[in-house]
Design a protein around this nucleic acid. Structure first.
Lengths: 140, 140
DNA sequence: TTATCCCCTAGAGTTAACTCTAGGTCAAGT
DNA sequence: ACTTGACCTAGAGTTAACTCTAGGGGATAA
């Protein structure tokens, strides 16, 4: 079966070899084999595992919790429920992040418009309403 | 003009007073006034500034860069272009994050399905194809 | 006036996730 | 035999963004 060196995997997944060794040290890669002299041999399934790890990281999951998941996988079918629950929870987390990002986007787009208008006018004063006298604090 | 204490602002924005003092120390709140004895008095405009700061943080912007923006705001109309460019860049950053989150979601949803099926079957083996013999590594 | 809060600063400590260094092994090429 | 380059470990260092502690001040309530 074909194997890959740590630097090949690093290049392929856009990670550093430091990061890969760190993940291994943290117990995220319990199935990576070694040569007699200790060099890691990554299989395709290890690369797939790393892709899932990156995906879970992207949901905001800390490495210690990802490690729990990896352990559950090694424990077999008795942990299927935990793993299912975990992915349902991750789905909710991603949905929440998407919602927050949408709100953030609205504010950012409003600011793009605000500054476009100010830039066209040559001054931010176009946005100042002077009903209650001059406001000396910047508006951001 | 009405002002707010640090703990009122903290409660209102769901931040700690430590965080607010930290932001102040880092130069993110140059317009917060003080009593003679040194107690901070937050105005509504300071709270608005904090909301923008939280928004920029949500785009992934580090505090040092947010500080640059705050400084530009104090410098007036000469920095309008920088500020506009910054928000355009932030918009692109948020779009990229949305894209990544969408891809992440697809993988997570696939896993939800994968584990739902396995759970119904009582074993993960339903997903194993045995064409090339038994695979002993867990699949994640 | 004494107790209780809330406020302050300076600076130390924490946490996560790397990132790097020192010192060493090993296989291949010359 | 020797050099080169990729690999290894243990453990120290880094960075961002807080988070907390110690020690102290001012205002209000009993």
């Amino acid at each position: 079966m074909k194997t890959f060196s740590i630097s090949e995997v690093a290049k392929q997944l856009n990670l550093t070899i430091y990061t890969l060794r760190y993940y291994d040290k943290e117990g995220l890669l319990p199935n990576v084999e070694r040569t007699i002299s200790g060099t890691r041999l990554f299989k395709k399934s290890d690369i797939d595992a790393l892709k899932i790890i990156e995906c879970l990281k992207a949901t905001g999951m800390p490495i210690k919790e990802i490690k729990n998941f990896i352990n559950w996988c090694s424990e077999g079918d008795t942990t299927l429920q935990q793993r299912y629950d975990m992915f349902i929870e991750r789905k909710a987390a991603v949905e929440a992040q998407m919602e927050e990002l949408k709100k953030t986007m609205e504010v950012i787009e409003h600011k793009c418009f605000y500054y476009k208008t100010a830039l066209d006018a040559g001054t931010e004063d176009v946005h100042k309403d002077n009903k209650m006298g001059r406001n000396f604090a910047p508006t951001y």
